[in-house]
Simulated scan of single mutants.
Amino acid sequence: MSRAAFYLIVDGRYLPIALGLASRLVNLWKIDVHVFLEDRAVTDPPARVGSRIFLHLNVLDGLRPPDLPETPNWPAIVYDRVFAPRFLEDYDRLIYLDADIYPLRVDPSLLTVALPSGLGAVQDTASIGFSPHVTKLDRPAWCASIGLQSERYFNSGVLVIDRETWNRIDFSTELTRYMARHADAVRMPDQDFLNYLFQGRWTEFSPAVNFQKAIFNYGYERTFPPVFLHFSSFQKPWLKPDALESPHGQFFPLFQQMIREAGHDPALVQSGRRESVMRRLRKTSRAWLSQRGFSTRKEARQRREWQERARHLSTGFQADLRSGRYVDTTVQDIDPINPALSFDGQYLRRPLVITLEESV
C-alpha cells in the first residue's frame, strides 16, 4: 500500500473544525493529516494539535496567481488546494477534504486505485441534469461557458491525488491561461478550472466517497454507503441545533463532540444569528399546515422540484452503475427508494440512515 495522507486548507475561523476533523481521520484511518492554516491574521497557532496531525501556517501564501476570481462562497483560499501537494513529498497518495465533511467509515480502495491522470473525484450531484442556478443557463450552455466539452463535472470537496503525477502540472500557469479565457463565466472558480483541466481524464469514484448535501433527501445512502458526508451548502451542521429529522440535526452533536475532543470550544463556531420573529412565524405556520395535510405553495413547489431531480438522479446513477463507471463499487443497480419527506416550513427533510464507524 502506498504511503498516504489527508490534507485540509482553512482560515482561522475554520481551524477548530479542521482539527476536530483531523483527529477523527487519524483515529479512523490511522494515517497522517496535514492542516494548512492560511490566514495572515493568525500569528500564534496552537502548539499541540494531536498525534499524526501536522499544522502548517501560511506556507501556501503567494503561490496562487494574483487577481483570480472569487465569490463570497468561494474565497481565494480555495485555489490553494492545488498547490499544497508540493509540500507533502513524503507521500504517494493524498486525499484533500473540505472542512465541512464528516468521515463515516474507511474505504481502503481510495489508497490503492490507480489514478492515471493524477486525480480521482466524485460527480457533483447538485449539477446532475442541471446547471448551477446562479448561471441562469441550461446545462450545455453552462458547460460551454467554462470550456467544458465533457458531460461529467466533479465536486472538488474530495480529491484523491497521485502526488507525483499531480506535481508535474504547472498549476500557476494553467490557472492564468484558463482565467484569461473564462474568468467572467466561472461561478465555482477552482472547481470549474479543475474540471476543465482534467476533463475526460479523471478517475471516477461513486457518490459514497463524496456524499453531498444535494442527495441527502433521496435515500441513496443505501446504494452508496457514505465514506465522507459532505455538507456542501451554506447550511453547516455546527452552526446551530436542528431537529433530529434532518441531517443537520443528526450531526450537530457529532460535530460538537468532534470539535470538543480536539480541545476546542464548539460554541466558537456556532452562529449568533437569529431568525426574525416574522420569518419564524411564517415557517411555523407552514409546518403546522403541512402536518395537517395542507400543502402551501412553498411546499408544493419544493415537492415538484424534488420529483424532477429524483428522475434525473435515478436515470444518471442507474446508467453509471450498469456501465461500471465507478472504480470503488461493483453494485450494478439502485436499491428501491421511496423516502418519506417532512416539511419543516422552510425545507423538505429526512434523516439519513447511516452507520457510524468507530476506530478500533
Rank of each mutant, 00 (worst) to 15 (best):
R24P: 03
L28A: 03
K30E: 15
D32T: 04
V35D: 12
D39A: 04
S51V: 10
S51E: 15
L55G: 04
H56M: 07
N58D: 13
G62W: 02
L68K: 06
E70Y: 04
Y79V: 05
Y79M: 02
D80L: 11
Y91A: 10
Y102H: 08
R105F: 01
Q123C: 11
D124Q: 09
D124R: 00
T125D: 05
I128K: 09
I128S: 09
R139K: 13
I146T: 06
G147I: 06
E151Q: 13
Y153V: 10
F154G: 10
W166I: 03
E174R: 11
A180S: 13
A180T: 12
D184V: 09
D190T: 07
D192G: 06
N195C: 09
Y196V: 00
W202L: 10
E204F: 01
S206M: 09
A214K: 04
W238H: 08
P241H: 04
Q256P: 01
Q257K: 10
I259R: 01
R260D: 03
E261K: 12
V269N: 07
S271N: 00
R274A: 08
M278A: 15
L281R: 13
L281Q: 12
F294P: 12
E299H: 14
R304I: 08
E305P: 05
R309Y: 08
G316T: 01
F317N: 07
D320Q: 14
V327S: 08
N338R: 15
L341W: 07
S342I: 08
R350G: 14
V360Q: 09
